[in-house]
Design a binder for these strands. Structure first.
Lengths: 352, 352
DNA sequence: CTGTTAGCGCTTTCAA
DNA sequence: TTGAAAGCGCTAACAG
């Protein structure tokens, strides 16, 4: 017996410096070797019931709690945690995706741990790095930076990387998105069918992939119906009630012939409803993403199931874990129109 | 040089079995000792700039990624992660509390990792255990089980345990709640002032502490105003649109003189609005917890700031970490009425 | 079925 | 300022 542990062994024999019982202490109390104690605690069937019993009792007495740092380090350095990096927990869409994924992972005894970037591209790298240093078994991410090549090394090492909602940039990785373009096309067609010919768009930040996809879908929709795409009918706004409100008013005044508006995400939709419900009630309106009170408010939306997105994300993650060498998947969850009234009513008189 | 590492050192000298570069590999490439490499990577000021440079380069070349399992194990066995256990990510209240806490922790370079119990008391223990085995530095929890004595050992070992929204049962621990009773009293007073004398309540599960506190506040409010508490005016419903709808209808038909209703949480409120908006528009109504479209819908609520709850929770966590021996704190975040119309309108004719 | 032994990757004395 | 050596707590390999 050499070294640091020499100074224990007298009065307070049994605990490590932190005061926490180690598996060794449990073993000693149970009168078995640490290896046996470890096996008993891990429900190894080769352990005699009597032995297991003794060990479990000892563990209980000492309030033993396994140290998964040591455990995971010893057994290959990979944990049972799946990381999920998102911008913002308060965004209900993100939260629902997480919930969907979590459920699938839990069935496999994998824990989803969520960390947020706060929408800041710099902290994004830090959060991702921390997750990887914690040796998560896979990493799901909704990232907003525009270059993910910094993950190339990690990919080569075989860490499953799954991009959610937005595809990776400069990196080959699995990816799950929703069908943004078709969703927007459907919205346009729906309004067109109701008689609207000048359809404005209040969109999120231009730099976001989802935004540009949705705008592209809008363009395709308009053009396929014989209309002309006018970029002036599209206003971008960051997420602030003021900016969104201003964008809406600008759009209205600049285009008196405009009879309908599409909002490209649920935060914009809700903000617009809060501030300009009466205007919206007098025009065609469709929001991208469903939201809780949309039914009551009779707001038609482009909908998809975020829980499904989460479940699918978890599914491809599990596939990737099982088969690290398969080529990356790219899944697209379909979108559909939910008609509730606001997107189906005809334009009011043009001379409004 | 003894043992397992002997068989490396020839052709593919540099990597561990996982293919991942270790600090040792970085050190070798940089021509320094592992200890020095470690110091350089940790920004130890005692390292020569030139040496640091070499090490960082080597780390870059090898795409080195620190293993925090090993790191944290070696240096005392505690991580920089703070655990947060909640029922359900999709509950916006929970999400907002998490967001508030996360922000405070991030400033201290602590990461909040969130895991959910799915509202199941059994999986609750498992999730808590997993978090503790991961050696989180502190554990924040919204638990629904009714006995937390299983955490007593952990408490004695000094792990900061912080109960959010609901106090611990059979355990001394820090706790942050909102002022449920006063919130309910305010709601009652508000409706009373508008002329309502028979006020019903649609409440969450009876077993929940928050529910019983809110009912108690309701009772106090009624009695302090000279009314009589009638438990028949209180209906409990689990979270399903059907059950909540049924409870509401039952309450209405059983009490024709009832002119106002209070909902005890935001999920019930939203569900009621979705299904019975027209009834609600003809009575006094106040919801506990604010929600996004409450302003538009002119729904008066008992409000408090969930972000504040999160921030406060984080604050007492940091205090507890700094001072493990202080006696437990119990913080109560105040609640207030936000008047938007539904809680201020007078009763319609009693013979409705 | 159980014990012995070694070592996961890192940091931290201690000595130079 | 750097290096050598030890060991955090655990489990896997190998004997017995």
């Amino acid at each position: 017996m050499i070294g640091a542990r020499l100074n224990r062994g007298f009065a307070m024999a049994k605990h490590s410096s932190s005061g926490r019982a180690r598996i060794q202490d449990v073993a000693a109390l149970a009168g078995v070797s640490p290896a046996t104690a470890s096996r008993a605690l891990a429900d190894d069937p080769k352990v005699t019931p009597a032995t297991r019993q003794k060990v479990l009792e000892a563990a209980g007495t000492l309030r033993f709690r396994r140290n998964s740092l040591a455990r995971d380090l010893r057994s290959g350095g990979v944990t049972t945690a799946i990381g999920y990096v998102i911008e913002d927990l308060m965004n209900p869409w993100h939260a629902q995706v997480a919930a969907g994924a979590e459920k699938v992972f839990r069935e496999k005894n994998l824990e989803l741990i969520v960390a947020t970037t706060g929408g800041d591209a710099r902290s994004e790298q830090l959060v991702v790095k921390t997750m990887l240093e914690r040796r998560v078994q896979a990493l799901l991410m909704i990232l907003l930076s525009d270059d993910h090549s910094y993950l190339e090394g990690e990919r080569q090492l075989g860490t499953p990387l799954i991009f959610v909602d937005r595809p990776p940039v400069n990196l080959m990785a699995d990816c799950i998105t929703i069908d943004n373009r078709n969703g927007m096309r459907l919205a346009v067609e729906n309004l067109w069918k109701a008689g609207h010919r000048t359809i404005g768009v209040i969109a999120g930040p231009e730099s976001l992939w989802t935004t540009s996809e949705r705008i592209e879908g809008y363009r395709q929709g308009i053009e396929s119906l014989g209309g002309r795409f006018d970029h002036k009918l599209v206003r971008h706004a960051r997420y602030s009630a003021e900016l969104i409100g201003t964008a809406f008013i600008d759009l209205m005044t600049a285009h008196p012939t405009m009879t309908a508006v599409i909002s490209t995400n649920n935060r914009i939709t809700v903000t617009l409803l809060n501030s300009h419900k009466s205007d919206i009630d007098r025009m065609g309106f469709i929001g991208f993403d469903d939201f809780e009170l949309a039914g009551l408010l009779k707001i038609s939306v482009v909908s998809h199931n975020p829980l499904d997105v989460g479940r699918e994300a978890a599914r491809i993650t599990l596939e990737r874990i099982a088969n690290p060498l398969a080529s990356p998947q790219r899944i697209e969850v379909s979108t559909e129109i939910v008609e509730r009234g606001s997107g189906e009513r005809p334009p009011e008189r043009m001379d409004r």
